[in-house]
Measured scan of single mutants.
Amino acid sequence: MIIKINGKYYKIKKIEKNPNGKYTITTENGKKYEFKNVKIFSEEELK
């Protein structure tokens, strides 16, 4: 799965839903981001 952050695309390693309704997304390079609204892309959609 792929996520778009600030115009760049990252591969997703893990998605966790937090009790506060936000999502914590861990990218393949180990960085964590927290979002309220998340749009996930499949690799097929990006081709």
Score class of each variant (00 low, 15 high):
26 T>F: 10
15 I>R: 00
6 N>P: 00
39 K>A: 09
26 T>I: 11
38 V>T: 04
7 G>D: 08
13 K>M: 13
37 N>D: 14
31 K>A: 11
13 K>V: 15
46 L>N: 09
29 N>M: 05
45 E>M: 11
39 K>N: 10
28 E>H: 12
46 L>V: 11
7 G>I: 02
13 K>Y: 11
40 I>N: 05
31 K>E: 15
47 K>D: 10
41 F>D: 04
44 E>I: 08
44 E>G: 11
4 K>A: 10
14 K>F: 11
30 G>F: 01
36 K>N: 13
31 K>M: 12
3 I>L: 08
13 K>P: 02
11 K>E: 04
24 T>P: 00
7 G>N: 10
17 K>L: 14
46 L>S: 07
8 K>S: 07
25 I>T: 00
2 I>D: 02
4 K>P: 02
25 I>H: 00
2 I>P: 01
26 T>Q: 03
34 E>M: 08
32 K>P: 01
12 I>D: 00
17 K>G: 04
17 K>F: 09
45 E>G: 09
3 I>Y: 02
34 E>G: 03
22 K>W: 15
37 N>W: 15
23 Y>F: 14
16 E>V: 12
26 T>M: 06
25 I>L: 05
12 I>K: 00
47 K>S: 11
38 V>P: 15
42 S>R: 09
31 K>T: 11
12 I>S: 00
27 T>S: 03
1 M>L: 15
40 I>R: 04
28 E>S: 12
7 G>C: 08
47 K>A: 13
23 Y>C: 06
25 I>S: 00
20 N>G: 06
1 M>P: 05
11 K>H: 09
4 K>W: 13
22 K>C: 15
33 Y>G: 01
7 G>S: 05
13 K>C: 13
29 N>D: 15
10 Y>C: 08
33 Y>P: 00
9 Y>H: 05
30 G>R: 01
27 T>D: 06
18 N>L: 12
22 K>V: 13
11 K>W: 07
12 I>M: 02
28 E>T: 14
38 V>N: 04
2 I>E: 04
11 K>F: 07
43 E>L: 02
24 T>M: 09
21 G>C: 03
5 I>H: 04
34 E>A: 04
25 I>W: 01
6 N>V: 03
24 T>V: 15
28 E>I: 14
37 N>I: 10
45 E>R: 05
39 K>E: 15
26 T>D: 01
21 G>P: 00
31 K>S: 10
19 P>E: 13
16 E>Q: 08
23 Y>R: 01
3 I>K: 01
36 K>C: 15
19 P>T: 14
13 K>I: 14
8 K>H: 11
3 I>D: 00
15 I>T: 01
9 Y>C: 13
38 V>W: 03
45 E>P: 07
46 L>E: 06
20 N>S: 08
14 K>D: 08
6 N>W: 09
26 T>K: 01
34 E>W: 07
27 T>M: 15
7 G>K: 04
24 T>N: 04
45 E>H: 10
2 I>Q: 06
28 E>P: 05
4 K>R: 12
14 K>W: 11
44 E>K: 06
43 E>M: 02
23 Y>I: 14
24 T>R: 04
17 K>D: 02
41 F>L: 12
20 N>F: 04
33 Y>R: 02
25 I>Y: 02
32 K>Y: 05
17 K>P: 04
10 Y>S: 03
